[in-house]
Amino acid sequence: MLWQDSCKMSARTAQIRFVSSHFEVYEPCDDSFALVDALLADRINLLEHRPTVCMEIGCGSGYVITSLALMLGQEAHGAYYLATDINPHAVRVTRETLEAHGVHAEVITTDIASGLERRLAGLVDVIVVNPPYVPTPEEEVGCDGITSAWAGGENGRSIIDKILPVADNLLSDRGWMYMVTLTANNPSEICLQMREKGYAARIVVQRSTEEESLHIIKFWRDFDSQVEANEMVTTNRAAPTRIVESMLSQFPRLPFWKYGNDSCN
């Protein structure tokens, strides 16, 4: 047990050698590491935020939720950690990974947050999600086995588009969400959708690997941006589609797209 204690004291992220595995469960990969790096980069803000309820959707091996619990310190803030996955093997593996690190999260086998949405509505302060985001034929989404860990359907958006409204329902007034996206997912359009729901967004980590370019985007409720977004939607309705598209392609330069760590969150 000694290593557990020392791990709990010193490590701020889960240790790969103590992450449990199963052949049908997604192993921690570049995207998982990028998400945890984003959380680490924002750790000071998270500590000040003092979340009471933290949740991961699609926990896979448990690497991310375990890291979050370790970096925020279970006991210091006494947060309630929850993790869901649609794959029962993943949920079991997550439980083992949490136990191996001496931290606790409640784990639930479910589709996104089904069964939790009514009672947890408006209570979740932090959501983290590394969704299945790889563009694939629609039939591969949600099919059995490891494929469902990455298969994201058209533009990789099938599951992401289901998660967004659920997250909006679950997040508290001061809620934050960290989400992994791929360039092919059209992150600018995701941000625009979230903006219409009243969220501001910024890129916390951007990483290009040989195969993919990942963005970890942080969303937070921002009532000013909701007003602006509504205005923009009204304006856009009159604008030709071509202009809307060209505006979206310039997305990184739009004012609500906040770069760096110096902005409000």
């Binding site: 029962p88 079991r92 439980r95 784990v107 479910t110 589709d111």
Partner: peptide, 13 residues
């Protein structure tokens, strides 16, 4: 019934 096994509730329909 939604089974709870090893402390894990299964809410899949």
């Amino acid at each position: 019934r939604f089974p709870v096994t090893k402390g894990i509730p299964n809410m899949l329909l």
